[in-house]
Computed example of a mutant assay.
Amino acid sequence: MPRVLRGHRWTVYGVGWSPDGGLLASSGWDNTIRLWDPSTRMCVYLLRDIDHPDTLFSGVAWSPDGRQLASGTFLRGVLVWDGTTRTQRWMGRAQATWVRRVAWSPDSVRLAGGDEDGNVYLWNTADGSQILQLQRHHGAVMSVAWSPDGTQLASGCGSRDSGELVVWDIRTGEPIRFLKGHSGVVSAVTWSSSGTLLISGGSDGMLRWWDVSRGTCVRVRQAHQGMIQSLKVSPDGRWLTSCGDDGSIMRWDLQCGESLHVLRRDRPYERLNIGGVRGLTEAQKTTLRMLGAIESASAE
């Protein structure tokens, strides 16, 4: 049975499971990060920015070893807490304006975050010192993801008309692939467990599979109505999960790209047939479809 965890007073921007599955972290624009016990549905701890209690939190992520928790913020860079004591360890600010998503390297030694200014920053997680600043994007960086071996980093951004997906060599700090195909912003990205495939999602609701070594798109699927917000690969590497602005969660066969399951709570106009309804503009029809309406020929 689905479980609803209530507590945030405003938008929930990010969620992340601890590596052992014992805690769920959620970050919100109510100036808090909440740690939940999923078995009891209770919030067991609140994290705040000790220096600026009005900080707005965005994407949140646990380190692979479970010892640290990081979050991007609006205007405060990244903040990192000790996963055991719940105390704030360090802040990595650089020139950060809005770090939407953060990602830990597989060895938990480095933290990456993409910024509104088009840069990708890398920090040393021991002391918060900045290691690299990757500068090639034109527009806000919406997504970052490490390759399984930790030698490459993928980052996505773009504009309304054209997406940018870049693969970086972390040893040199130079881009090694520019993957083009998304018609809009590249809003989410993840790697297959083997590191041979990169999967990206866009503001157009499309999923793309990329052969990283060749730099080619090998598969395209329509996934969501509206922006794809997050992509996750299952621990066994078999399944891909996507979620989007349409309120649905979809599970895919990672290798063949077949859609397997769709999870969705009923939206305000779920299954309302607007086929044949007069007086609606195309923009209004699009909005109603995103809210659950369908458009089919009405029976005479």
Rank of each mutant, 00 (worst) to 15 (best):
P2V: 15
V4T: 10
L5T: 00
H8C: 10
W10G: 13
T11H: 13
Y13E: 15
Y13R: 14
V15F: 02
G22F: 06
L23D: 10
A25S: 04
S27C: 09
G28K: 03
W29Q: 13
R34F: 15
L35R: 01
L35E: 13
W36I: 05
P38H: 08
S39R: 14
T40Y: 08
M42C: 03
M42A: 10
C43E: 14
V44N: 08
Y45N: 14
L47A: 02
D49L: 01
D49H: 15
P53F: 05
D54E: 11
F57I: 00
S58Y: 10
G59W: 03
A61Y: 07
W62K: 02
G66V: 06
L69H: 08
A70P: 06
T73K: 05
F74D: 12
F74H: 13
V78R: 02
V78P: 07
D82E: 09
G83L: 03
G83K: 08
T84E: 15
T85F: 03
T87K: 14
Q88C: 10
W90D: 03
W90T: 00
R93D: 08
R93M: 13
W98C: 13
V99K: 01
R100Y: 07
R101C: 10
V102S: 02
S105P: 07
P106L: 09
R110S: 13
A112Y: 14
D115P: 05
D115N: 07
Y121F: 14
Q130D: 13
I131K: 15
Q133D: 06
L134C: 04
Q135E: 11
A140K: 03
S143K: 01
S147F: 00
S147A: 04
P148W: 12
D149G: 02
T151Q: 12
S155K: 05
G156Q: 08
C157Y: 02
C157R: 07
S159Y: 04
S159L: 06
D161L: 13
D161A: 14
S162W: 12
S162F: 15
G163M: 06
E164I: 09
V167R: 01
W168Y: 00
W168S: 04
W168R: 01
D169E: 07
I170L: 15
P175R: 03
I176N: 04
H182A: 10
H182W: 07
S183M: 10
S183C: 06
S194A: 12
G195D: 10
L197I: 05
S200C: 01
S200G: 12
G202N: 06
G202I: 02
D204A: 11
D204T: 09
V218F: 11
R219G: 02
A223P: 12
Q225L: 11
M227A: 15
L231V: 09
V233T: 01
D236T: 00
L240P: 09
S242A: 10
G244K: 04
M250K: 15
M250V: 15
L254N: 05
G257S: 00
S259T: 15
S259K: 13
S259I: 12
L260Q: 11
D266Y: 03
E270C: 06
E270N: 03
V277R: 06
L280N: 04
E282K: 01
E282V: 00
T286R: 11
R289I: 09
L291A: 12
G292E: 05
E295N: 05
E295P: 03
S296E: 14
A297Y: 09
A299W: 14
